[in-house]
Simulated assay, not measured.
Amino acid sequence: MTTPLIELHEVTRRYDEGPPALNDVSLSIAPGEAVAILGPSGSGKSTLLNLVAGLDRPSAGTVTVDGVRVDQLGEAASAKYRRARIGLVFQFFNLLDDLTVADNVMLPAQLAGMSRGTAERRATELLGRLGVDRHAAAYPGRLSGGERQRVAVARALMNKPALLLADEPTGALDTASGEDVMRLLTELHADGQTVVLVTHDLVLAERCATRTVQLLDGRVATDTALEVLR
Rank of each mutant, 00 (worst) to 15 (best):
L88D: 01
L88G: 02
D56F: 06
R83I: 03
V70T: 11
L99C: 06
N50M: 07
A53Q: 12
V101K: 04
R82Q: 10
D71M: 11
K80Y: 00
L48M: 15
R69I: 00
G54A: 09
V52W: 04
V89R: 10
G87M: 02
L38G: 10
L95K: 04
Y81W: 05
T47A: 11
D56R: 04
D66K: 13
L51W: 02
D66N: 15
T100I: 09
L38E: 07
P40K: 14
G39A: 05
R69D: 15
T62R: 15
A79S: 15
Y81I: 10
D98W: 01
K45F: 02
R83P: 01
A53M: 10
A79W: 14
G87Q: 03
L107Y: 04
S41Q: 09
Y81A: 01
S43K: 06
R57F: 00
G67L: 11
S59P: 08
G44Y: 08
V63N: 01
D98A: 09
L49Q: 05
D66F: 12
N94W: 05
V68D: 03
D98G: 08
V63K: 11
F93P: 09
R57A: 09
T47C: 07
V63S: 11
V63L: 03
L73P: 06
E75I: 14
A84R: 15
G61T: 04
D71K: 13
T47E: 09
D97S: 15
V52D: 03
R69M: 14
F92Y: 12
N104L: 15
L38K: 14
S78I: 13
L55F: 06
T62L: 03
S43C: 06
R83M: 01
R83C: 02
N94P: 04
A102W: 06
L48G: 02
R83S: 00
L49K: 02
E75N: 15
T62M: 08
L55P: 08
P108A: 01
A77P: 11
A84D: 13
F92G: 05
R69S: 13
R57E: 07
D103R: 14
A53W: 02
R85Q: 15
V105P: 01
S43A: 13
K80S: 05
Q91L: 11
N104S: 15
R57V: 07
L48F: 02
P58I: 05
T64E: 10
L88I: 09
K45E: 10
S46D: 11
R85H: 12
A77E: 15
V101W: 02
S78Y: 00
N104M: 15
V105Q: 00
V65R: 13
Y81T: 01
G87R: 03
M106T: 12
S43P: 09
S59E: 09
V68W: 01
V101S: 10
I86K: 00
P58G: 08
V70R: 03
F90C: 10
K80P: 04
T64Y: 00
G39E: 03
A102R: 11
T62E: 11
D66E: 14
L96A: 06
S59F: 05
V63A: 04
A53P: 10
G67V: 03
V52R: 06
V52L: 12
L96C: 08
E75M: 11
R83V: 01
F90V: 06
V63E: 04
L49V: 07
D71T: 08
M106L: 12
N50G: 10
D56N: 11
